Simulated assay, not measured.
Amino acid sequence: MKLFISVFLLISSSFVFAGSVTGTVSRIIVRDDGLHYVYINGEILNRAECAKDYKYWMIKDENSTYGKSQYSLLLAAKASGKAVYIEGAGTCMRWGDGEDIKYVSFN
């Protein structure tokens, strides 16, 4: 029984919480060092621990195909005023306190 409990605790402690949000794009920022991030008007659910004090979402790799696609989709959402859904990756790899975007879709 102790072994079962130990294994359960080990596995459950390795789960990463990822945030999500549904809402309209309020701001998109692109800095001169290439950092791309976005603010969404909406309630953030289950925010990753590394980003719990901040409301912006990071495009993890703005030079990749998926990063360019995410940026394009977010620009289109901002221009149209339509809501988007963002699912976070549960990590803050691109910036230490901004959750990386895993998934973006129009609602």
Score class of each variant (00 low, 15 high):
residue 1 M to H: 13
residue 1 M to C: 05
residue 1 M to E: 12
residue 1 M to F: 15
residue 6 S to T: 09
residue 7 V to Q: 11
residue 7 V to T: 13
residue 8 F to H: 10
residue 9 L to S: 14
residue 9 L to V: 12
residue 9 L to A: 15
residue 11 I to L: 15
residue 12 S to P: 00
residue 13 S to E: 00
residue 13 S to R: 04
residue 15 F to E: 02
residue 15 F to V: 13
residue 16 V to R: 13
residue 16 V to K: 12
residue 18 A to T: 08
residue 18 A to L: 10
residue 20 S to L: 00
residue 22 T to A: 01
residue 23 G to I: 04
residue 23 G to V: 09
residue 24 T to S: 11
residue 24 T to Y: 04
residue 25 V to E: 04
residue 26 S to N: 10
residue 28 I to R: 03
residue 28 I to C: 04
residue 29 I to V: 15
residue 30 V to K: 11
residue 30 V to D: 07
residue 30 V to P: 00
residue 32 D to E: 14
residue 33 D to A: 06
residue 35 L to Q: 08
residue 35 L to E: 11
residue 36 H to V: 13
residue 37 Y to T: 01
residue 37 Y to Q: 07
residue 38 V to Y: 03
residue 40 I to D: 06
residue 41 N to L: 03
residue 41 N to W: 03
residue 41 N to D: 14
residue 41 N to F: 02
residue 41 N to M: 01
residue 42 G to C: 01
residue 43 E to Q: 04
residue 43 E to M: 07
residue 44 I to V: 14
residue 45 L to S: 11
residue 46 N to M: 10
residue 48 A to C: 02
residue 49 E to C: 00
residue 50 C to G: 02
residue 51 A to R: 05
residue 51 A to G: 09
residue 51 A to D: 12
residue 52 K to Q: 14
residue 52 K to P: 00
residue 53 D to Y: 08
residue 56 Y to S: 02
residue 56 Y to N: 11
residue 57 W to V: 01
residue 57 W to A: 05
residue 58 M to Q: 10
residue 59 I to W: 00
residue 60 K to D: 05
residue 61 D to H: 09
residue 61 D to Q: 09
residue 61 D to T: 06
residue 62 E to F: 03
residue 63 N to G: 13
residue 66 Y to W: 07
residue 66 Y to E: 13
residue 67 G to L: 07
residue 67 G to C: 06
residue 68 K to S: 10
residue 69 S to Y: 10
residue 70 Q to K: 09
residue 71 Y to F: 12
residue 72 S to R: 06
residue 72 S to K: 10
residue 73 L to S: 09
residue 74 L to A: 00
residue 75 L to Q: 10
residue 75 L to W: 05
residue 78 K to L: 11
residue 80 S to N: 04
residue 81 G to P: 08
residue 81 G to M: 03
residue 81 G to T: 06
residue 83 A to N: 11
residue 84 V to H: 06
residue 86 I to N: 08
residue 86 I to G: 02
residue 87 E to P: 00
residue 88 G to Y: 01
residue 89 A to M: 09
residue 89 A to V: 00
residue 90 G to A: 11
residue 90 G to E: 04
residue 91 T to P: 00
residue 92 C to F: 05
residue 92 C to G: 08
residue 93 M to G: 02
residue 93 M to T: 15
residue 94 R to E: 15
residue 94 R to T: 11
residue 95 W to Y: 15
residue 95 W to A: 07
residue 97 D to C: 03
residue 97 D to T: 13
residue 98 G to P: 01
residue 100 D to N: 13
residue 100 D to F: 06
residue 101 I to M: 06
residue 101 I to K: 08
residue 102 K to S: 12
residue 102 K to D: 10
residue 103 Y to P: 03
residue 104 V to L: 11
